[in-house]
Write a protein that binds this DNA or RNA. Structure first.
Length: 120
DNA sequence: TGACTGACGCCGG
DNA sequence: CCCGGCGCCAGTC
């Protein structure tokens, strides 16, 4: 235990991060969800988390999941990746608003983890 | 060890 | 409808 600055060999992302990424991967193609929904679901598993934290996770580890299916509560894609996000959403046939600014129609494409259990 | 940083959410104007 | 500000909380330096 000498000067072990990195006592975490595996470490990497915490359970919290894995939970969030797992939830995002469950979002079916052609649908979309919000940071708040993911945060709420993650909170039920890890007991912690918030919409803000989910965003931080996506920014650091969201590269391996369909991050474009996660939008804000208003249906808008994060400014940071709005261009790429809208492009991918359109390619999947996700319903977007006709008038600017382009936003996801959550009323039609809105999805939540709970559906994964009742969907068949 | 502590402080700053954000892929957000909500309310008020 | 749009804009600004405050709160939230794990991750990272």
């Amino acid at each position: 235990m000498e000067t072990a600055s990195t006592p975490a060999p595996d470490a990497g992302p915490g359970e919290y991060v894995e939970t969030v990424l797992d939830l995002v991967e469950r979002v079916p193609r052609g649908r979309a969800t919000t940071y708040g929904v993911i945060a709420e679901a993650a909170r039920q598993v890890t007991g912690k988390g918030s919409a803000r934290t989910v965003g931080a996770v996506m920014a650091r580890y969201g590269a391996g999941v369909p991050w474009w299916r996660v939008v804000t509560a208003s249906g808008a894609v994060a400014d940071r990746v709005a261009g790429r996000g809208l492009e991918l959403l359109q390619a999947e046939g996700v319903p977007l608003t006709s008038h600017a600014p382009p936003r996801v129609d959550l009323a039609e494409a809105g999805w939540e983890p709970a559906e994964a259990g009742s969907q068949m």
